[in-house]
């Protein structure tokens, strides 16, 4: 891709927009089409596009492999801890009313938002991780490797 100057320029400008759009999908997921999963995929798509055009090394400077791994775990943790939070507030697990005990509707709203954030982080992490794994695969295996 070294000579595709246009592609590189376009990519650089478009990546930011994709990320922004990802954030939009993420935070409007509770009452319009979208949500954590879609947002995560869009987010990951931005990094994957960058990786395809600029090369694996460049994108890993931005988002190293170990960060991706931790992100995937972090998202799950966010999700689970949301539920634990409601446990600590004396409600059942994942009972979002805990976020705002006096206005359960608001609580549901907040709860969904946090959970979706967790989902988004995990999906981003996992998708990018899969891309990294495939992209950095050893192209050829020797007989001894098997």
């Amino acid at each position: 891709m070294q000579h595709h100057l246009i592609l590189k320029i376009v990519t650089k400008s478009i990546v930011g927009i994709i990320l922004l759009f990802g954030l939009y999908v993420q935070f409007h997921g509770d009452y319009s089409p979208g949500g954590g999963f879609q947002a995560g995929v869009i987010f990951a798509a931005a990094f994957i596009l960058y990786g395809i055009v600029m090369g694996l090394d460049k994108v890993q400077e931005v988002l190293p492999f170990w960060v991706v791994q931790k992100l995937a775990a972090l998202g799950v943790l966010v999700y689970a801890l949301t539920g634990v939070f409601s446990l600590f507030m004396g409600f059942n697990y994942l009972d979002y009313s805990a976020f705002s005990p006096h206005h359960p509707e608001h609580g549901q709203h907040w709860g969904i938002l946090v959970v979706e954030l967790g989902v988004g982080i995990t999906v981003t992490g996992v998708i990018v991780c899969i891309y990294y794994c495939f992209a950095s695969r050893t192209p050829h295996l020797d007989d001894g490797e098997w």
Binding site: A72, A73, L74, L77, A80, V84, L87, Y93
Partner: peptide
Amino acid sequence: LHFPILQVLIPLLLAPICVLVG
């Protein structure tokens, strides 16, 4: 009272922590 969920939750919660600790 929350034991049924904690039964599943504790290992689930510890799994990502494991990754984070590394």
